[in-house]
Amino acid sequence: MNILVCISHVPDTTSKINFSENNTKFDTNGVQFVINPNDEFGLTRAMWFKEKQGAKVTVVNVGGAETEPTLRKALAIGADAAIRVNAAATDGFSVAKQLAKVATDGGYDLIIAGRESIDYNGGMVPGMLAALLDANFVNNCIGLDVDGTTAKATREIDGGKETVATSLPLVVGGQKGLVEESDLRIPNMRGIMMARQKPLTVVDGVETTDQTTSVSFEKPAPKGAVKLVAEDNLDELISLLHNEAKVI
């Protein structure tokens, strides 16, 4: 099995989100970047396919040179090779188009992406990629097994989950559940050393037209102070929720 794992390079979950250039750009000052958590679950599942079923695992990112440490980390976790498409990731559709080119050129039969990136939360790249490749697609994927060219996947749905049968070529939008939190791997020294020897290929992007344009950003209005209610005065809480907040 030839697996491609799409890696989004995102601010660490604890980052303070600020904007620069008159609120038109994300301010990366002091921000630490990581592998998008949803993608990390997918990458770890890919490592399982590598170790148990002899799969080859390539990771790919669409972005500038600043994303390379994130790809190196994926290599240190155990991916065999990395590709960086040298193009700005400014629009979900354009990113999907870049990835589709890489997927077609490399002849991958399983593509694992994250259900969404935690920065722009677009949630569209895996589905668009599947549509562009005319491949099968399972979103919110929380379980995946592959046997030959058939696949069984579990998908989270509102209020539960469902199991589906499908076949390769397949794109999944993954999340926690593909592997458990405790299965995630922290790269060790050997992994980090080996990652330096592994190929990280930079390819040029294809021509695309952005379907959406990010215009500006805003931060939520600061919150008012919490209203505290004494623990022996819960009638007050009920009254506030009923009369003031009008939510019960």
Binding site: G127, E156, D158, T212
Partner: peptide, 23 residues
């Protein structure tokens, strides 16, 4: 923004050649 609609919207976007804004 249900799980199902978020699942189908990107597929629809490609087939209609439409830009998609979520959330």
């Amino acid at each position: 923004s249900s799980a199902d609609s978020k699942y189908l919207a990107p597929l629809l976007a490609v087939s209609l050649n439409a830009g998609y804004a979520s959330n």
